[in-house]
Design a binder for these strands. Structure first.
Length: 365
DNA sequence: GTACAATTTAG
DNA sequence: TAAATTGTA
């Protein structure tokens, strides 16, 4: 590329393949993940392209006043909202490599099923490192393949993990070929969906005060730590979109502001996926039941109790539906519904029907 | 275990 | 023409 007398060369590094390199038989971009992933596996990642030796990247500019990082006032102190981020992640390339190695040595064999359990530590937690470019997908791909080739981990576990990295690639492809992905539904008829304007509902969702524990625990985890478990991201997104009928763009905006791993391609593609207006063609009946999902993926309620201390003493039988608990159980757990923890702000069964009606409307339209 | 509706994609 | 990440009742 040339312009204004400046030559620009780009070097692949943040993706396994540039978006235009993963092509369908007819040469266009994929709109469905499975065939995209099949092709990506076949062609494999691009070889690392190193910077030419002649290019030296300038180091950080020295502060004229002080070399001490603490004097620069870069980190928040009052309040130190980064505290829990610092507790959970070690920023930088070394921290990223350590995280990858730890995952490959300890967690990956349980990844396939375990990745859905927010109460356990089975995910790689590499997303912030990927988002900040502290590790490349090629490094992840290579390290995982090496482990697999060495017979240290099962093929199934390795490929399941790498397929999730490939979802990131797929999202980038969708964004590259659809520049409006962050704002506009890929399926245009969804612009007519009967969304509700509900500032109070949005606030309740953001603060983790919906009355559905798995939703609230997720939103509080996000606010406190800057990160949320993937399964819970789907649950809270489904609740905002399908139960509250609030436009997915509002949810995407909140995630964009609060996630330490915020990534425009992942965020946009994933919110569209939950909304059903993305590349996936048949998701209209996929409406998560927050109680069922909680019981299935946080069976003992450990995740809920970690982020909702006000429910700490509630027995697991009622942990995902406190409003169903008898009064004496609530009393024994020091819970006063409507005071210490909200009643559900919406009835899920009603909301489900309402969401389905909405889909009918845009279908016949 | 099955129905839930209809559409789009990819080969 | 087969298939389509992640669900629910």
């Amino acid at each position: 590329m040339k312009g204004a007398g400046v030559n620009v060369e780009t070097f692949n590094g943040s993706l396994l393949r540039e978006p235009w390199e993963v092509k369908t038989g007819s040469g266009g971009p994929y709109r469905v993940f499975t065939p995209f992933w099949k092709t990506l596996k076949e062609i494999g990642p691009a070889r690392a392209q190193l910077w030419p030796n002649s290019r030296k990247i300038a180091g950080p500019q020295k502060n004229p006043k002080s070399d001490k990082l603490s004097d620069w006032g870069l980190l928040p102190t009052k309040p130190n909202w980064a505290n829990e981020i610092a507790q959970n992640w070690t920023p930088g390339e070394q921290g990223a490599r350590d995280r990858l190695n730890h995952f490959l040595n300890n967690n990956i064999d349980d990844y396939s099923a375990g990745r859905d359990r927010p109460d356990k530590e089975f995910t790689s937690k590499l997303s912030p490192h990927l988002a900040f470019g502290e590790i490349s997908p090629l490094q992840i791909w290579t390290a995982t393949y090496d482990k697999m080739a060495g017979g240290n981990i099962s093929d199934e576990a390795a490929m399941k993990f790498l397929s999730e990295v490939a979802w990131r690639e797929f999202s980038y492809s969708l964004l590259f070929f659809n520049e409006n992905l962050p704002e506009k539904p890929l399926r245009e008829n969804f612009a007519d969906y009967p969304w509700r304007d509900d500032p109070e509902g949005l606030k309740a969702w953001q603060l983790g005060l919906t009355g559905y524990p798995i939703v609230d625990a997720g939103m509080r985890q996000l606010w406190r730590t800057g990160w949320m478990h993937n399964r819970v991201r789907m649950i809270v997104a489904s609740f905002l979109i399908k139960d509250q009928l609030i436009p997915w763009q509002e949810g995407a905006a909140w995630f964009w502001d609060t996630l330490v791993d915020a990534d425009l391609a992942n965020n946009s593609a994933s919110w569209q996926w939950v909304a059903g207006c993305g590349a996936d063609a048949s998701p209209y009946f996929r409406i998560f039941n927050p109680v069922t999902q909680g019981g299935k993926f946080d069976p003992d309620g450990d995740y809920v109790r970690e982020f909702l201390p006000e429910l700490k003493k509630l027995p697991k039988k009622y942990i995902h539906a406190p409003w169903k608990a008898p009064e004496d159980v609530l009393q024994a757990a020091d819970i006063k519904l409507g005071k210490t923890y909200p009643f559900p702000i919406i009835d899920h069964a009603m909301a489900r029907e309402r969401a389905l009606e909405g889909y009918n409307e845009i279908r016949s339209a």
